[in-house]
Structure formats: C-alpha cells, structure tokens
Design a binder for these strands. Structure first.
Lengths: 341, 341
DNA sequence: GCAAACCACGAAAACGTTTTCGTGTTGATA
DNA sequence: TATCAACACGAAAACGTTTTCGTGGTTTGC
C-alpha cells in the first residue's frame, strides 16, 4: 500500500493531537461536536481503518486463530474448515489456514509462525510424519506456554489440550457390522499405517466386529496401504489371492473409490460380489456408480465444536480449567455399494 | 499465551538495555562476546522468537499474503491454494485464507480485514454475488491505494490488476469439438449464469464449436443452472424433451457428475447413448464409473503463477508497471465417458 | 601527555493504536 | 474575587521490535 491514512496524518491535517483524533473517531464526548464531525467526515472520506497490526500489538490479542491441516485438497478437512470458519466469523475471529503437507518440519514451522503473536489460538490435525516420529515436543511447549490449542481428528492422546474426535472405533465397528448384515463372509479392511491414530481405531472396530461375528482374523484381509507406492496395485493384490474378500471396509474415501474401480475392472459386481463401505462422505461417494455407502464424519460439526472449545480455552486462559474433549458420533450412510441383496 | 519471553524481559534479567539484547541476538560485533553468548544462551533456553506483530509494524510489511476464495469445499480452489501456498512458502511468505462463501458482503469484509496492514498482497477469485451485482468498488479502491492484487479464474475484466485465467473459451471449444468427433449430433451445454465470466466464456467456446460444425443453436440444449434450486431436476428436464441431447458439455465437475448419474438412471449408456465431458479434473472425474473425460484446468499451476505475479507486484509497488495477465492453457483429458465408439 | 580511535553499551525514535492522566481555559457560584 | 466544575484538548506510556546516533571509558599512537 502506497500510504494508508493513519491517525497521525489526520491529526496533522486538523493540527490537533493524535489522541484527539482517536477520541473523535470513537465518538468521545471529550471532543467538541464540531471537531468530531469534521474529523469523522475526513476519516470517512479517506476510508480510514485502524491498522490491525498496531491494534493487535496494543491489545495483545489478534482476534485471529490459526488452523494447521495436513493437506487442503481433501474433502474432510475442507468441511471442518468451513465449520470453524463460520463460527469464528460469527464471533469476530479471523482464520489463518496453514498446510503441513504431512510434514513434521512444516508443522513445526507453522506452529512457530503462528505462536509469535499472530493468533490467539490454534486448531490442528496432526501430520502423519509427526505421528510416525512420535515427536510432540512442539505441541507440548505450546500448551506449556499457555497457548490455547485444540486438536481434531488426528489427535495426540498424551497431550493435555482441547480435542474433537470422531468415534472412529464405533464407526468402524458399525460399518463392519453392516457389511456382515448384508451377507459378507470374508471382510477385508483397507487402512493406513497404525501410527495414524484414526486408522488404528477404525481397525480396532473392524476387529471387534469380526470377533462378535465369530470370524477369524485373517492377516491376508488386512491391508495397510503404503502411500509411497501406487495404491491401486496394493489393493489389486487383495483380490488376487486364493480366497478374495467379498466385503471391503476402507478407512477413507480414496481407498474405497479405488477399490471400487478395481473390483469393477475385475468384472465383479458391486454390491453382489463385493460390498464396499468407505469413510468421509465426500463428493466421490455421492457421485460414484454405484454410489458408495460410507461413514459420514460430519466434518462441519467437528469444525464448529473445535472452534467452540478453542474459544473456551481462549476466554479462560487464566483459569487452569480441564481441557475439554468432545466426540462427534459419525453416522452410517447406506447407498448402493452395500444395498441388501 | 501466558507471558511470552520478550527483549525487555531478557534485558531486565541481565540488567542491560533492550538495544543491547537485540544486538546481541543478532550477533552484532558491538556487543562483547562474553555478554553475547550469555544472552543468546538465555534466549535460546526460553525459545525466544521475536513477536511478529511488532516486527510487521516496524517493517511495514508482514511477509504474509491473503487469499479470498468463494468456497473451500471445492477441488479446483484447493488445488490453486496448494500452488500458491507452495511458492509462497518457498519465498518466505505466509498465507491467510479467507472464504467469501459467494457473498458480496463477506468479500468486502474480508478485503477490509486483510487490507489493514495484515497482508502485503491479495489473491482473489471473485464471488458470484459480486459478479452478479457488478459492484467492484471495493476492488477498485484497493488497487487505487496501491495494494498488490491478483485475480484468478473469476476475474474482473475492467479492473487493472494482475490476473491469471484459464483459456475458458478455447477449452470449451476443444471440449465440444471432441464431442462432435466422437459422433455427437445434439450437443447440450450445462452452464452457470452468464455473469459468471468463466461460464460465459466456456459457453462461447461451445457456440463457436457448434457454428464450425454447422449445427444450429438450440436453446433447448443450453441449460443455465439456477443453484437456488435442485440441480438434478433441472438436468433431468434436459433429457425429458422430445429430442434429447446425445452429448453433454458441463462447465464443472458437479454438473457433469450429476448429469452422469441422471443419464444412467434413465437407463442410457455412457458414452454410447450420451457422451459427457466435464471441467476441473477432480476426484469425481477420476473415480466415477465410467471415468469422466474432463478439461484439466491445472489449478496448481494457476496458483503458482498467481503468486509469481503477486510477488512481482509486491516487489515493484513503487514502479507503476503494467499489471501482468497470464493465461494457463487447460488440457483435455479423455477418459471413458467420451471414448470413441 | 594528549588527541584519536576504539570498544561496549544506552537512549531514543519509529511503526499505529488506545487510554490514563494531566492542563489551560471558560463560566458559574459563593 | 477566589473557588470549582465543566469543557476540550494534549502528553505520554504501553505493546515489542530495530536501528541510528550518541557517550563514557579505555587503549593506541606519536
């Protein structure tokens, strides 16, 4: 900006002090009506807006919160952001979004950046690399320093901070129960590495469901995707074994959609030969053919709740209150890919 | 934060002046090595980081840019953001993302917020409501005040600022040519209202292709979706007329996917009975069955270019240079939904 | 023995606000 | 005529930095 209008410039224009201008613009009765009007008219004409940096510096708060997510081209995260954003705006807060790109280093950098006065609080979903390393010091020092922090989805159990999660275990359990109900006999799971907490929980739900249906655990039916390699090849192998699965529980939408593609390419029918259920109710699930049954995580609601808790933390920083943890219950959405036969 | 460590506190600790501490931390030779080491050790121990607000205020720049997009649950916009973000980070810039939710008012608010010192430059894709109103004063005053501004995708032609667009006309033209090549005789377009510039351009490409193939313009084959109502109903009507289309050019992914669903529900085969091509190469296109031919806009590259131009504007604010406009050429991606018969 | 140079540090301004506490000028009151 | 309030405004501190320009004290050079 070439030269934004400031209090100082207005003051010089009217040959009064900065304080006078400030008060006049705030309608202070200390300033004569005459001068007040003139100053306000002038300021208005030049679209005067107080400089945010200066305000924040003085008030020691920015009315801004930061969000760090692993990636943004991702339906679930964007819905969460929508939720956060809406409630934040309603409460007069701005939102800064940062991407960790699943990298530990970028997460640390983002955290440092945000912590240095820019934001009043932070909402995070932890990066995979961080989870894998098990290195959480950057978060620990943050909460130690009293920075309000809320984690969602991928949270760190050992950390004492606000949290919003899905009931991933329960959702996995229900999803698999549903697959058994529609007649699956050999139920496979396509999941992430176990260090991704949410994936691990969903797998536990899968195992619980197996147990309750007196199904033996078959390691050949448990696929941990290694994202360093092509996903489709790994999934294809699942079906190339002697005794291929007739039901798939995928812990995210991409895995589910990829599985669907492969199943169809192999000439099998969905849901008759293979029933599939995914996770995250995104566009893919709705528009695929057949449409994909899925676990709706309600990202928007997670976002709302995350901000609500964060606001709580911000407003009660002095009090050393217990950090709230909220669990948003996912719902099963039954579509064509698991319709009863 | 309870009490971040500041220069002042360090100064008190060592009973020296603030200036001394500042210099010591910057390895100034003005400070004795002994004192320097001690101060640095102390600062290090307490994780001292200069307060960004103070720095920004002093330097009159924030090394931060703002992005305003209409919505975030949208593949194209998120890919653009990824591009911006990557290049921004490489250049030491932070990114603030704001959502206008297609609302004029929120756009104005966001713009004001960002302009008050927080950011050094702004990248925007204009909201639909703004385009409809034709009210661009908020942008005009912004550029008048010398704020570096780059628009992408939905730009305002009359505004003199940096711009990155797709060749929407050319893409529409090519997409329709392709449909004619695969044998379509009655080619329909599913588009937005004409005030959405990109939609209008794509439609022009459609018309041009019609003309070149000596096809008459049939208003019954031109569908302007009204997003206030259900999309599917409107598309369904397209096929319920006497002489339904055998080819669909949809100006975005959602329209294309919805059309595919409806066509299939009507018992028609894709691409044999109806060929379909969409826009934006997102997840839906890749994972739908049949997979969707589409126009890839290369959002990531658009993002890269947008930041490149913005950086240019930021670094040459003094010079009154011409504002660059860059056109990123989209590519046709041929998949199953338009495979040659 | 005295100026010059050097060393190691401090004071203060600047960025743009807000707010507390003056302070000089009126006009009214006792 | 002295006192007091009301009025209308200004000075200054504070938020946390950086940087320019001192400034005392010591060392060097002649």
């Amino acid at each position: 900006m070439k030269s934004k209008i400031t209090l100082k410039k207005i003051a010089k224009e009217f040959d009064v002090s900065i304080s006078t201008v400030s008060k006049a613009l705030k309608n202070s009765h200390e300033i004569s009506e005459d001068l007040r009007d003139k100053i306000q008219a002038f300021a208005n004409y030049y679209h005067y807006k107080p400089n945010s940096l200066a305000l924040n510096l003085r008030n020691q708060k920015s009315k801004t919160i930061g969000i760090i997510i692993p990636e943004i081209v991702h339906h679930f995260f964007t819905t969460v952001i929508s939720g956060i954003e809406q409630l934040a705006n309603e409460n007069g807060y701005n939102v800064i979004i940062c991407l960790s790109n699943e990298s530990y280093e970028k997460e640390v950098l983002n955290l440092e950046m945000l912590a240095n006065g820019i934001v009043d609080g932070i909402i995070v979903s932890v990066s995979k690399e961080t989870l894998k390393k098990g290195e959480f010091e950057h978060f620990e020092t943050l909460v130690m320093n009293g920075m309000p922090l809320v984690m969602f989805d991928r949270v760190i159990d050992s950390l004492d901070c606000g949290k919003v999660t899905s009931d991933d275990f329960g959702a996995g359990y229900l999803a698999c129960n549903h697959l058994f109900e529609v007649g699956c006999k050999r139920l496979a799971i396509i999941t992430t590495d176990d260090f991704v907490t949410v994936g691990a929980q969903r797998k536990k739900g899968y195992l619980k469901s197996l147990e309750e249906h007196q199904m033996a655990i078959d390691e050949n039916l448990i696929l941990h995707i290694d994202e360093q390699f092509e996903i489709s090849g790994q999934i294809e192998n699942l079906f190339k074994q002697n005794n291929p699965p007739d039901g798939i529980f995928a812990v995210n939408e991409i895995y589910a959609a990829t599985a669907m593609k492969i199943v169809q390419e192999l000439g099998k029918k969905i849901p008759d030969d293979v029933a599939i259920i995914g996770f995250t109710d995104g566009f893919i699930s709705k528009f695929s053919t057949p449409s994909l049954s899925t676990v709706a995580q309600h990202g928007f609601r997670i976002g709302l709740k995350a901000f609500e808790i964060l606001l709580d933390e911000i407003e009660h920083q002095d009090l050393d209150v217990l950090h709230r943890t909220e669990v948003i219950k996912p719902d099963l959405i039954i579509r064509e890919s698991t319709k009863k036969m």
